[in-house]
Design a protein around this nucleic acid. Structure first.
Lengths: 228, 228
DNA sequence: TCTTGAATTTAGTCCTGGCTAATAATCCTA
DNA sequence: TAGGATTATTAGCCAGGACTAAATTCAAGA
């Protein structure tokens, strides 16, 4: 009589795929390709095709053979719920459990699939309803809205700009660590000295007049916005 | 080359079975029967037989057809790790996130499978390394040792005894709630007025000279030990 | 436009962990 | 001690989610 598939919350695998599609679509405009999702989740492309078909069945993505998947409204809601959880959990781990940046991502990745909405709500309360996590990423609201993002990476900056770090990529623990040690963290103000097209090196000066030369990979891990 | 099955941590299902065997063996002396585990985990007996065989493969239980399963040393260690996590998480939920007793069990049940040993350690620290959870159950040490338990249920008490509540069963949320409201919680001192064999009703008086008549189901949910 | 290499999909397997139905052991009681 | 009743096990099935190998489609350059 009652349709279990309808009421049961998506499995953790399903959530991982939704988040991947959301993130990839965010910074590539259109649909998420099979390969990009496969790479991100460390899974074979065949598994992705398979899952795309199932996600479509469930009404979570729109999928067309050979042209990738985009989230439906329901899929987006679900992805944002996970993202909200993830970022709140990261905040908690960093601020209350003394985690450092290397450790935080993986732990949050596992926990976000296990906690309930009640837990999420209580945790948000405990943390004082933050709107950004410690990496500077905005935390989606419980209603599924997310501040839009006018930031860009440091490698797209122009010499002379005064910029504020809005966030740093949290995928690579080593980079995160490197930046953290030098206090290149969200909130920090930078002046751009030079952006060298030749090799992608960006030279910046921080608030203490410390100068850093950042190679392209690093420059692409640092997001900034105009200091207003 | 390297045997994944050996290094990968047991799935959450496996953990649930180990915990069930541990709990059932604890209060029935010997081996856990297929049926008792099936009932506790709400699965079919056939599934239990199946899992017992696999757990034996993995070296986590000793299993003999038609006579139930007991934990091996490795199985016991693994079960205690889970129990430790569970009880620390419950403590956290109750003390820091404002959960009440109904809500706490299920949330902890899901979380215990998702958290790492690092998380567990940090959480223990945050909580001040408690040795009992708020229900009065002892929390196993990180090394897998557990204080032994000389408590018994109130229904086994004798009139005239002065007893201290050591813990309350946490399986039935409604009972937990009822007891909580009346402040019949771990640490509380009781005098036994009467234990009526006829209907199992136990009559006790608390520290404020409040008198309670507790039916058998309630009396079996309250564990006590002699006040020393 | 043809070719070719990359991306994708299909086909066929596997493992985990459930289920039901049928069969077998064990236990208890007359 | 012989039946039932209870408890367990077997057999066979299913779905989720992963994999590999083979086949297909797409896109881009010659």
């Amino acid at each position: 009589m009652n349709d279990l598939a309808e009421t049961r919350s998506p499995s953790s695998s399903v959530g991982d795929y939704l988040k991947a599609v959301w993130e990839l679509a965010a910074d590539s405009g259109g649909a998420a390709s099979t390969k990009s999702v496969a790479t991100r989740l460390s899974v074979s492309p065949a598994s992705v095709t398979n899952m795309f078909a199932r996600l479509q069945e469930m009404g979570l993505v729109r999928y067309e053979r050979y042209r990738g998947a985009t989230l439906t409204e329901r899929g987006r809601k679900e992805a944002l719920r996970l993202v909200r959880r993830h970022r709140l959990i990261e905040t908690f781990l960093l601020e209350h459990l003394g985690y450092d940046w290397q450790e935080v991502h993986d732990e949050a990745e596992r926990l976000e699939h296990a906690v309930s909405d009640v837990f999420t709500g209580r945790l948000a309360e405990l943390l004082g309803h933050p709107d950004h996590d410690p990496h500077g990423d905005p935390i989606p609201s419980a209603e599924g809205t997310l501040e839009e993002d006018d930031s860009f990476t440091l490698s797209q900056a122009v010499a002379g700009q005064r910029l504020r770090i809005s966030k740093v990529r949290d995928e690579d623990a080593a980079m995160l660590d490197y930046l953290g040690e030098r206090n290149l963290v969200p909130g920090r103000l930078l002046s751009v000295r030079e952006v060298r097209a030749l090799d992608g090196v960006v030279i910046v000066e921080d608030e203490e007049a410390e100068v850093y030369a950042l190679g392209e990979p690093l420059a692409r891990s640092i997001f900034v916005r105009n200091d207003s």
